[in-house]
């Protein structure tokens, strides 16, 4: 497969949107400033809309998309449903915030909304789990998508909290972000192991191609350096009780987004079929 840019941006933006919404919901328990949550909810909606727009660019006939409503077992139906539900919950959450609903109500909406958001982050990766593509035929693939959404959520919350002074929340976010970064690293390594032991080995989907071949710049530069090491360094470097400056926090988020996109490009390049005829 080539670089399916529309799908790369679709899944990356959806990861950003769902991750941000869940992170904003978690911040309800940290009693952060309402402005942080308001901006976070809006950011989540914009990211979900950008993801939806990107997915439409991939379609040959987007005007026929409503035909998918009749086939609820397909991956596209699940993705569309979860985007809709997550967006709906984000809107409900924003309305609750604007109307000054109690913390109890907001927390309930956040918990209910987290379910489709987490399912969405997983589903956009799970769609690619196919026996026809040995490098994709592992549940570690949607796990990478899910954890990358969590990472994007943590870092976008970091940007939103950059002007906050509440030490407890800053410390909690720092350690959560580092934990998610470590988990992302572990799952990426596990995914490469799964690719290495996948059936029907072929040079086009070999780990050698990833580590030392023509995909090495994308992996080492995009996934490892920009996607993991730079955000890790920035997160570790900040003082325990003080948030990162806005510019640094934004840079960490952009790097994680580039890393997420790089992994998706890597995945598409490894996604050759068992025996490609044409």
């Amino acid at each position: 497969m080539g670089n399916e840019w529309a799908l790369v941006f679709f899944t990356a933006f959806v990861g950003l949107g769902s991750g941000t919404f869940v992170a904003v919901g978690v911040s309800e328990w940290w009693e952060e400033d309402a402005q942080v949550r308001l901006r976070g909810g809006i950011l989540a909606l914009i990211a979900l809309a950008a993801g939806g727009f990107s997915s439409v660019l991939h379609l040959g006939h987007p005007e026929r998309i409503f035909g998918a409503l009749g086939h609820p077992t397909s991956g596209i139906f699940m993705e569309a449903l979860m985007i809709g539900l997550t967006g709906l919950c984000a809107v409900a959450y924003l309305i609750a915030l604007r109307r000054g609903a109690s913390g109890q109500v907001r927390k309930r909406i956040a918990v209910i909304g987290a379910v489709p958001a987490i399912l969405l982050a997983f589903a956009v990766g799970d769609t690619y789990v196919m026996a026809s593509r040995p490098a994709w035929d592992t549940l570690l693939l949607p796990m990478v998508y899910l954890i990358s959404a969590a990472l994007l959520g943590c870092l976008s919350l970091g940007v939103l909290m950059a002007r906050q002074q509440k030490a407890e929340a800053v410390v909690a976010l720092k350690w959560t972000t580092l934990g998610v970064l470590a988990l992302q690293g572990v799952v990426v390594i596990a995914y490469l192991v799964a690719v290495a032991v996948a059936p029907y080995p072929n040079a086009t989907r070999s780990v050698i191609r990833v580590l030392t071949g023509n995909l090495a710049p994308l992996f080492w530069g995009g996934v490892v350096l920009v996607g993991l090491l730079v955000p890790s360094s920035l997160t570790i470097a900040k003082r325990a009780a003080a948030p990162l400056p806005v510019a640094a926090a934004t840079f960490a988020l952009v790097c994680a987004f580039v890393g997420a996109a790089s992994f998706r490009l890597l995945m598409f390049n490894l996604g050759t079929s068992v025996w490609h005829f044409f």
């Binding site: 040959g60 006939h61 690619y128 005829f277």
Partner: peptide, 27 residues
Amino acid sequence: DICIGCRYCMMACPYGARSFNNDAKVV
């Protein structure tokens, strides 16, 4: 007439036996 050109079927085929028609925007 109802193909949306999402190309998931092309991904699902183990043999790459399907192709995308760039003019008709369907598989």
